[in-house]
Every structure is written in structure tokens, then in C-alpha cells.
Design a binder for these strands. Structure first.
Lengths: 207, 207
DNA sequence: TGTACATCAGTGAACGCGCGTTCACTGATGTAC
DNA sequence: TGTACATCAGTGAACGCGCGTTCACTGATGTAC
């Protein structure tokens, strides 16, 4: 990794190539997994030569990092939209709509090729694990921002820890939907929402 | 993978070598991750030559599979002990002691070198993902066995789905403890237990 | 509008390296008498 | 208890292969006048 960052693409053709490399990488993660995927394989499937990949990504890990960040940015957009809609209504409004957030997040994941495998690859690779962690912490922070004004009496660390756990469990439930066909997505989302709701309202209760 | 299974070791020396290979593999998963670990690396760190590894494991995946199964067998022992203690007391007794199960499971994970990385590697490798899935389903099945006699009025699929989710969330919370230093393990376990308890008691409530 | 030039996007071929795995073998341990 | 033999445990050295990455280059696109 001599060159830390690559110049961003200038032309539409280049942006298309770069996006396709990421799409292909996601699909290959699902097919062969993190320990078999290779830069040559990604380039071949995307229909470009190996050096073309290195025009956009500093090394193999940079591809996976960009893939992970793209997915998480999309999840983040969903969160921001949800916050804009429900944060003004206070804790009660947010607690009532936890299921929406879970469902919309699941829709983003479903739309991305190999999304679950991207998340798992980030999780299983020491050099990449910080990406997912930072994202979960960011989400937690945004939720704390939204809740704290209504919960002045709650210890900030307790609030953070409770929401951090909620974030982790929400993502875990989302991931489970992709491997456990025997359960219904709607039922799981409803169950998770009904588990998290009292955890949030319980904080409001302690005056 | 011409040879599906290897003969189990006959001598104490061999059992020791085999166990050490697994311990080393777990430690290396934590250090370099699933996409960098190699059979030569495992053998070298264990102080044996590469062919010695192939005496005990059919191929590279068989090492990781054995590692995963060993960890899950240990988690399973904890579950069986807990069931023996609390299943006779019915739903209420089990609901009251969910925290114990989570804490004891966390202790098993903490004792195993690289445990969290083993679980993540299984999760991120298409050829190995069935192992973790089978284990979670087995745990779910045992919990259903314990709960169903007291919940004759509950639809079996609903019971299975609810407990399957509880298992997933319990393991997810356990894994979170290893990467999120900002939260206290006891608080997380207490929070998860208090989220899962009503999910279980709620089933009993619908007469 | 045409053309000269600068910059961007992508290629063909190859590099050194470590991978997973195997062959033919030696040393260690257990067993029968 | 000693020894001959069978089986088990582990080694040294190497194999073909695909990995991540780079070099020197060509073709495509945009820009200035």
C-alpha cells in the first residue's frame, strides 16, 4: 500500500467501472467467500484487466473497505431519513417506529449484491473489522443525539450502552433473515421491535 | 479432499498434537484472519511439519470445521447443564435464569483462544457457514424441547421462531462484548436477559 | 468547427512469493511370545 | 524381561498453481484556441 489513496475517477466511464468492480466484488464474496476472492478474479468478472482495479483501489483491502463503506452509507441514509421523521416526536414516537427502521434497513441490505457476505467479511478480517465497528458506533451516536434531549435524567454512558446493544441486536436480526428461511421476516422484525421498545421506554420511565 | 475422514489418533502424543493444531489455528485466526491463515502457518506455529497436519485433517477446511465444532460442543455442554438445572422449574425458572446461560456461554468463549474469530470465520466462509447454522438450530431445538411441554397452546412454529431469534441475539450480544470495550459485560448480559425474558413469558401468557 | 495536445482510462504480460498438498521416507510406540 | 515385528506419528523436500501487484505501454476523452 505505497499509495494511500487513489484519485477519484473523473469521467463517467470510470465511475461506471469502479461501481462495477464493487458490485462484482460483493457477488464474489457471496459465491466464494473472503478467503477465496482475489483481485484478479474481481477484475476478470468485471471485464477489465488487473491493473485497472489498481487505478481505483490502493490494494485488495481497499476494495473491500470501499464496498463496506458504500453499504453502510446506504444504511446510514435510511437512518437519517427515519430520524428526520420520528425524532421530533420524542422517545415514544421513535419507540413506536422501531419496526420501520428495521424493515427499511433490511430492504437496503436485500438490494445490495452479497450484502450479508460483505458484512461478514468485514467482521471476520482483522484489518477491516474497524469499519463495521465505527459504523455501529456512529449509528449509536446518532440515536443518542436523538434520545438524550428527552432523557436528561439518564446517565449518558448507560444510554449509550443500551442503544449500542440495540444497534447490534438489530443488525444481527437482519443478518439472520438471510440464512434462516424457516422464520418469517415480518415476524422477526415485529419480535425484535417488541423486545427493543421496552428497553427504550424503560429509560424514559426512570425519572 | 480425496480422503473424507482421517483416522482418529491412537496415542496420547497424537491427541496432544491434534489439539495443539486446533489451539494454534484459533490463535492465528485472531491474528491474521480467515483470508491470511494457511496450513503451513498453522503447522509451523504448532512446531510440526505440514504433512503432520494432513494426518489429522483432510484439508484446510477440515481444520476450521473441527475448530468450530469443538467450540460449539463446549457451548453445548453449558446449555445442557443449564437445562438440567432449570428446565424442571418450567418457563418461569428458565426465564429467571437467562442471564446465567448468557454469562456461562460468554465464559466458554472467553476461555477459547480466538473464539470470536472462529465464529466469525465460520460465518464468513460459504463452505463452513452450515456448521454455525446447524449449531444454532440445535440449541433452538433443545430450548423448544424444554419449553414446549409447558406451552401446549402455543403454535410450534411460532415457538421455534421466537426461540431461534433469542438464540441469535444471545450469541450476537456475546460477540459484541469482544469488540466493544466501552460497555460492561454484566450490564449487557443483564440488558439482554431483560429483553428476552418477556419474549419467553409472553408466550406463556397467551392461554 | 477543426485540430493539437494534455490528461484520463485501461491493457498485455509478467514478477516473485507463498499457497495447499503430496511423495517417499524415518523415528517412536505398542504388542506378541 | 527381551526381542522381533507391526503400526502409528511425524519429517524433508518439493510440486504446480494462482495470488497480489507492477511495468511500460496504447487507446479514449476532454480542452484550448
Amino acid at each position: 500500500m505505497t499509495l494511500a489513496k487513489r484519485r477519484p475517477p473523473q469521467q463517467a466511464r470510470a465511475r461506471h467501472t469502479q461501481g462495477r468492480l464493487l458490485d462484482v466484488a460483493g457477488a464474489l464474496l457471496a459465491e466464494v467467500g473472503i478467503e477465496r476472492i482475489s483481485t484478479n478474479m474481481i477484475a476478470a468478472r468485471a471485464g477489465v484487466s488487473p491493473p485497472a482495479l489498481y487505478r481505483y483501489f490502493g490494494d485488495k483491502y481497499a476494495v473491500l473497505e470501499a464496498l463496506g463503506r458504500r453499504l453502510m452509507a446506504r444504511q446510514n441514509d435510511v437512518l437519517e431519513a427515519w430520524l428526520a421523521r420520528h425524532a421530533p416526536g420524542g422517545i415514544a414516537a421513535m419507540a413506536d417506529h422501531i419496526g420501520d427502521l428495521l424493515a427499511e434497513n433490511a430492504a437496503v441490505t436485500r438490494a445490495e449484491p452479497g450484502a450479508v457476505w460483505i458484512l461478514r467479511a468485514l467482521h471476520a478480517t482483522p484489518r477491516l473489522v474497524h469499519i463495521r465497528l465505527e459504523s455501529h458506533r456512529h449509528v449509536t451516536g446518532r440515536l443518542v443525539d436523538a434520545c438524550a434531549p428527552h432523557l436528561a435524567q439518564v446517565d449518558p454512558e448507560t444510554l449509550w450502552a443500551r442503544l449500542r446493544l440495540a444497534v447490534e441486536l438489530g443488525f444481527a436480526a437482519d443478518e439472520m433473515l438471510y440464512e434462516e428461511q424457516r422464520v418469517s421476516a415480518d415476524a422477526v422484525i415485529a419480535d425484535v421491535a417488541s423486545m427493543l421498545r421496552p428497553a427504550l421506554l424503560g429509560l424514559a420511565g426512570r425519572a
